[in-house]
Amino acid sequence: MGHLSEEIINKANILLEIYPNKRSALIPLCHLAQGQDGYLTPEAIVEIADLVGVTPAEVRGTASFYDMFHLEPVGKHVVAMCTNIACMLRGADELLEHAQESLDVGIGGTTQDGQFTLEEAECLAGCNNAPCVQVNHRFFGPLDNEGFDRLIKDLRSGKLKDEVPEHGVLNRVDRNYGLKATPDQVQAERDVMESAKKERLAKKSESN
């Protein structure tokens, strides 16, 4: 059987439906696969390539452009710490230093127990809670050193299990929540667009 779970394949098929061009679903599919494994495994890449009709080299190349995709194994929790201007002014640099010490890991590294990968990030759009941190795409902040340690402790103990799913998936690629649209709805919308276009063209040729 394939590497991606049946559940993911089902979601992928819904996603593939809603784009006029299959390859447009590449990024959401990468998110789904990453949600399963934590990173884009070569097996997943080959399957995605097959699903969207491009080569594995193209999937890997495209994914490599984005910081949010990992091409190598990561810890159970990916901790992305913003050091952009708002957070920096509120002590992000110091917090990052603290995080490195307390996790005993460098930026981009994964702790020995495989629990945490620490990353430095650009603005996460959580400036109102600066300095802010994302764990598996879930927001935490504002954080000071103690707050950070507490967060780590809670993550370790599993207290935040429900809030922070392992290898978190982005809500917006998960069509069971968010912007779910059925193939019928999609087709209907497309038909409307098509007929509007035809009308426009007809008007244009009339006026000519």
């Binding site: 080959v46 491009v54 080569t55 594995p56 080299a57 193209e58 890997r60 190349g61 452009f65």
Partner: peptide, 27 residues
């Protein structure tokens, strides 16, 4: 590879000054 030969076995990997041409490791 993509446009003429129709088999994009190589593609850019990474971004900015780290961009490199790359194959998929097993292919």
């Amino acid at each position: 590879s993509e446009e003429i030969a129709g088999e994009a076995e190589i593609d850019f990997l990474g971004r900015g000054d780290r961009t490199e041409v790359a194959i998929f490791p097993s292919q």
